[in-house]
């Protein structure tokens, strides 16, 4: 069995990804606990931070774009997130009149 010697020895990508995830997590926590911003703004910011962190996982940990199916995998996930947004925002909007 051949080895994958061309692979880098120190997992830079993972370490950077991990550090960034920690930064984003604590940033979100800080925005919520001590930023003192308006509620809507807070929620907007933490949702953006969450999306950043999710893409971090997909690209840096999950190797979404690798292999000959990388394109399909990426389109699949992009479409999945589109559907997710439709379901979540759509449901909230549609059911707003009873909330």
């Amino acid at each position: 069995m051949a080895t994958n010697d061309h692979h880098e020895t120190f997992p830079w990508k993972h370490v950077i990804g991990f550090v960034l995830s920690l930064v984003l997590t604590f940033a979100a926590l800080w925005v919520v606990l001590s930023s003192g911003l308006a509620t809507k703004l807070i929620i907007g910011i933490i949702v953006i931070l969450a999306m950043l962190q999710a893409s971090l996982q997909l690209f840096m940990f999950m190797h979404m774009t690798e292999s000959d199916s990388g394109k399909i995998q990426t389109i699949n996930m992009a479409y999945a997130f589109f559907i997710a947004i439709v379901i979540v925002i759509g449901s909230i909007w549609v059911m707003w009149f009873v909330v």
Binding site: I87, G90, S91, V94, M95, V98
Partner: peptide
């Protein structure tokens, strides 16, 4: 509880 939420999910 919200009965109408079922209709929403069902038709999605």
């Amino acid at each position: 509880g919200m009965s109408m939420l079922w209709a929403n999910l069902f038709w999605i």
